[in-house]
């Protein structure tokens, strides 16, 4: 099973990762981050993540700290 880990303390809510995820598995969470906006969270109930790491590549904050591919 592929998955990513997000450090919500580093997320500045630019949402660039949400745009690049091919399966839209990254969504706004209920947590309010340093910029006063909702940080992102990874939710993959249908196990769609392929571990492509595009989210990690575009993240300007290195807030996506891990990508694991099956």
């Amino acid at each position: 099973m592929s998955y990513i880990k997000i450090d919500k303390d580093k997320c500045k809510s630019c949402y660039l990762c949400m745009d690049v995820c091919p399966y839209k598995l990254i969504k706004k969470s209920n947590n309010i981050g340093t910029t006063g906006e909702y940080t992102v969270e990874f939710s993959d109930s249908e196990k769609k993540c392929i571990g492509c790491a595009q989210c990690a590549i575009v993240c300007p904050e290195i807030a996506i700290i891990e990508v694991n591919r099956e």
Partner: peptide
Amino acid sequence: MQVYSIPK
């Protein structure tokens, strides 16, 4: 397999 991590 971890394919991405914070650079050392």
